[in-house]
Design a binder for these strands. Sequence first.
RNA 1: GGGUGAUUAGCUCAGUUGGUAGAGCGCUUCCUUUACACGGAAGAUGUCGGGAGUUCGAGCCUCUCAUCACCCA
Length: 1044
Amino acid sequence: MAMDKTFDAKTAEARIYEMWENAGAFKAGANASRDETFCIQLPPPNVTGHLHVGHAFNHTLMDILTRWKRMQGYDTLWQPGLDHAGIATQLMVEKELAETQQPKRTEMGREKFLEKVWEWKAAKGGMIEQQARRLGDSMDWSRSAFTMSGAESAPATEKDGNFHDAVLKVFVQMYNDGLIYRGKRLVNWDPHFETAISDLEVENIEVDGHMWHFKYPLAGGETYEYVEKDEDGNVTLRETRDYISIATTRPETMLGDGAVAVHKDDERYAPIVGKLCEIPVGPKEQRRLIPIITDPYPDMNFGSGAVKITGAHDFNDYEVAKRGGIPMYSLMDTKGAMRADGAPYLEEAEVAQRIANGEETFDEAMIAAMNLVPEEYRGLDRFEARKKVVEDITAEGNAVMHDVTRTEKDEDGNKVEVTETVPYVENKKIMQPFGDRSKVVIEPALTDQWFVDTSKIVGPALEAVKTGRTKIMPESGEKVFYHWLENIEPWCISRQLWWGHQIPVWYGLDLGVEDEHNPSGDLDEVEILGLLLEGIVHRGNVMHCAPDFESVKSAFVFDNADTPSPISHAKVVEVADKAEAIERFSAGLAAYNVTQDPTKLEFPVWRDPDVLDTWFSSGLWPFGTLGWPEDTPELAKYFPGDVLITGQDILFFWVARMMMMSQAVLKDDPFHTVYLHQLVRDAKGEKMSKTRGNVIDPLDMIDEYGADALRFSNAQMAALGGVLKISEDRIKGYRNFGTKLWNAFGLAVHPDYQVPYPGDATLPKPNTTLNKWIIGETAKVREEVDAALTAYRFNDAANALYAFTWGKVCDWYLEFSKPLLKGDDEAVKLETQQTLRWVLDQCLILLHPIMPFITEELWGLADNRAKMLVHADWPAYTAAELIDADADREMNWVIDLIDNTRSARAQSHVPAGAKVPLVVMGLDDKGQSAWDNNHVLIQRLARIESLTAVDAFPKGCVTIPMDGGTFGLPLADLIDVPEEIARLEKTLQKLAKELGGLRGRLNNPKFVASAPDEVVAEAKENLALREGEEAQIKAAIARLKEIG
RNA sequence: GGGUGAUUAGCUCAGUUGGUAGAGCGCUUCCUUUACACGGAAGAUGUCGGGAGUUCGAGCCUCUCAUCACCCA
């Protein structure tokens, strides 16, 4: 077998991956030799997604665990799949439609648009699955799941799957259990995508903003004494005011104010609480007056202490408005422009005034329909409206003014001070919410949405972590988890999108014909006309939830059984929306009216147009991927899974939701361990971003250095809870490590050594110290790796293997074995060949989970293998079995002697290539035997010509202190005496420091009394060794000084 | 404002019940020695952010200050 100079990752990786995949090496249960299962659910990437460094990182960890367990014979499944990613995908397709001059989404309609999305998915979706293969991911691709599989809109060409069934089933179940409800609430509204988004999809960013100060005049020109006091109660300002001063960062929302709130303890405003003030904007003839109320929310020390309350446009105000029964007027449309619908402002304002005066009652629906935007602002974008509101108020003199003095140069160039009275506008940093995808300012909006009553299902998830059933790593994640779940908000699950699982709820017209008003149960002509005239439009809807239209029909039929005949017999039909329903219903009634034929009557129902939040479906991932709600063997076998590995940023987005949903649906935890990692950053620790230009593409790294190098780097930086900084230098370093391993095999196949490689190596029983020693070292590292991986300490596993492979096997074992392999002792030669082969095989096996490609390639170099490396048996030998303590001690002594000799040589400027004689003084039996056993190796690696035992060192001898004897290099006149003295004294200084510490401790009676025995014993032993060394060096210095 | 984490060699980071500091990269010197220059050999570098405390002993535990990062208001 001949080898190339280096591993050619570029061509080999694709070839090897294909080999694995074709052999079905990653299929669920492949290589299983025991019943225990090991299952990891891949956090499903967006169908639009590409492999970035974060994926590359956590995929590496998942793959390491999966490959490791598979080699151990577990029944293993790494479940892949894709998330349909509502907003991201819809956006992507809309963008493409625009670029290719196709009709817009709204122009082509829902059905056609969904076709386009599926087409896009088939053509361009799921790129990441190909990219993941390049990383070496050992997922069972045949099981790849999709969170929209089985949807009504899915074309026949799509792969089978029933995720949609799972989603609808869970929705219906939770709806029936009262865990899901519909309601009008303030939600984060994205004016770009025109949909509600979750608060987790909002980024709060500090931006430069303004705080305007306006006067809200008191109704009827009333006045009051406005008094300000300092901390000691001294009056600092007293004036008569006919207004209340309001500070706001969002003047355009003034139009929707329902009240002004002050703190109940705020003495400044006590005289005017309960009175009305005027919103100083809009047509003069109908200025709205709103009450001044008290509420705990206003901060007396912030701004003027008075807060305008716009319940429909601010989360804090919303709470105040709810508490105070203040109407919440919506001002904007779905695009964030000022509303242009509804009645003229004057009419609306009049109604609003009657409400404010307490002359008229109101309900939610009525308030929602009202548009309090004056005509001159209607249709304006919210930011334009803001500008205009500020201008208008300022022009009318209702802005709070202050004096600003600045220095200017007059015509002659002299500096003069100019004082102006200008509106008081503070420039300040404000936190503004932005959509994490759209990047536009999020508008709190009062809309009808569906919610999961999370507080009702959070219990078991919390308990899972509290009782330790589910462990979050690192532990700090648990605190964060508790904090969030204990303060959980209702989860808004509806999205105003088309791409997603459409909510399985149908609405029908509320006929509401009550029995007492119609005791006969018959609907006569007058009543039919009444239904029409009364305007079904203004009546509410009835709704039912079921997985599909057929199942929901019966619910409506049942409802209508109470209605008078012949309506009770009306056929339930599905229509697009309420408008069409009214039309169809009216038409049916009219036809019945003419023909008296009850079959003409139809009861039209329409489906909720909204879709479910993507995270609702991904919350079902742990069991939806396994075939639930079908009762599949995979579900029985692989649920619950074992460990979830994901970025800590989606602990709430996803992890908590999977835990809640699994418990809500299957009454079980989805996994026992959650491994959270931080964001992967660049080498400087900065977030990667396109604008910064510091994005590292993992595929570039794979192209350049190979997947194994990237994977090793990922494993190496995976310290629990650590900051992840990806560095190209490091990746390069691990590429070099791969080459080192490659070349280790190069030695075995080298013509000088010709280690035969017939097939799988078996554990040899050698006689030589060297071979015994390396077998023990191998057992040690196997234990280290298993312990590290068991504890999810990937960095420890990687580092242990690096140190073993390079630092032990390559640096020492291979070098030592060379003379034996070329020697004349056939028995030694044979056992060394066997041991070498075995050790190299162990390197491949143990490294395979981290570096699968190069190890599989090297594995294939042997003539005859039982299995591919991907399915090779993971070893179970222990250090206790395989370590030979004598061999261990002896080899460490040998290595020490070589190290010390080399060091002495280098520092004495002995030419690197020169072979020199070695002398020794007072060598004890152990030392002698160690020398005798290993002198060939020592002489070769330390470039020693011969060893001579002497009673006294010759003149000019470099000293090498060792446990069991003092060695020396007789360099005669070559030696620079002062330099050698300096070298020894330096060593002595270091030694003195150590000795000081050791003696200090041992002389302290408290230490000896209170420290554990083994620590004391170790210190004593150490002290003895160091003292011996010190004596040797002191003697050496004395000798040199005599010469000098 | 609340929470979490960080601060260790020039750089990037490890350091698992407290026992006296490590790795990779980089740097300096030497070596084209028969697996490997993507290499080998040797070497230098740290009052472990500051201060205080507990302890025989603190990078590790407690308190405090400083700086930074992230998350949530």
